[in-house]
Design a protein around this nucleic acid. Sequence first.
DNA 1: TGAAGTGCCGGCCTCTTGA
DNA 2: TCAAGAGGCCGGCACTTCA
Lengths: 216, 216
Amino acid sequence: MPENMSKEDGPSRSACFTFTIDSILNLKQRQDGARLDALKEQRDTGSRTERRESAAPLTAASSPEAQGAHGPEPQQQQPAADTKAAVKKKTRTIFSKRQIFQLEATFDMKRYLSSSERACLASSLQLTETQVKIWFQNRRNKLKRQLSTDMEGPLAAEHFAEAGKNTQLPSFYKDSSLLGGCLLPMPFPVVYPTANAAPYIYFSNSAKYFGLFDGD
Amino acid sequence: MPENMSKEDGPSRSACFTFTIDSILNLKQRQDGARLDALKEQRDTGSRTERRESAAPLTAASSPEAQGAHGPEPQQQQPAADTKAAVKKKTRTIFSKRQIFQLEATFDMKRYLSSSERACLASSLQLTETQVKIWFQNRRNKLKRQLSTDMEGPLAAEHFAEAGKNTQLPSFYKDSSLLGGCLLPMPFPVVYPTANAAPYIYFSNSAKYFGLFDGD
DNA sequence: TGAAGTGCCGGCCTCTTGA
DNA sequence: TCAAGAGGCCGGCACTTCA
């Protein structure tokens, strides 16, 4: 799905308001990197119809990695593009606390993002959309694992699927249209009504916000 | 999309009620073929978690084509599976008028179907889900082309995208939950509210229903 | 520990084919 | 004419890798 559809979603939407959490938190950091995922993100640009209103025209060279984190300090661990086919050592970016906080808060609201919501959140966090996408993917997986171990039983996974099925989340073609596709993360417990059981409430690791407030 | 997600949608949903249009139209046809798309549909069965509550266990052999149409008459044009690797001549199934009618009516309601809606409609029409999926795909394309020529301008396509974006449509993860994922096609004009323009009304070829009522 | 890589699946789109 | 094939893109999931 959904993609191709991004065609119907990406270009003409521009649902990203500038008053996002960023402006609220007043944490305007650098505007440099945090773009192009080089290999995969580029083909994104090559879609049929134009898509993605991303600024930078993707300057073919340099910064092959998306190191969209770590406050103002440069902190590049990529091979500096010495040779053409750089070794491309697998880097592990560390998201800032502000980014994690916002991602977690958003995750509490909904576990799946529409493309426009993703774009909005990404630009708000100075991350690539792919990074946000992957973060949510990994986060979902983490949640699933946590539930499996917490509930110590095969039903855990079902609860997860159950909750994820009839509730939340978007579609590739249309977003929740709340705030025009933008989310304002608010750390509240989320209720996941299940189809055949009493509403299942998950407080999403209530302690995860602790220690995330003191700057990056 | 979705897929993978069909995992969360397929198995535990069973949202297909038996009072579908079929029971209304009292057109219980044969229950035989109209399944397995052989090549592609089969891997569907091989998904990670079980999915699809389809009856027939997919008997490896015979009926490689999905000829889910044409009233009671057999009408098979496939190579009868004489040799193992039959020539597999490209067949062109002709849907019955009843099937077309129902598909068109459903299409008027929404131009994209969730997996459960698709499953429901498919079983209701004795067609494979793939056939329904492809039909909707081709129908969407047809609509788009019609709009392009009708409006004689480059804006037509945009209107289509515009309409398809903020309106309808499902998601891979959750369906409209109307009637439990089942649709009751009702030939009414559909209103496609656009984001930045007055609601765009499309009467979906008002004459297309003519001549579709007289039996198969 | 967790961002990212890999492999597989399904859907959608566009264009094309051939009964 | 139109169901279906083919090629290409995207997102999701499971599982793995390694700074």
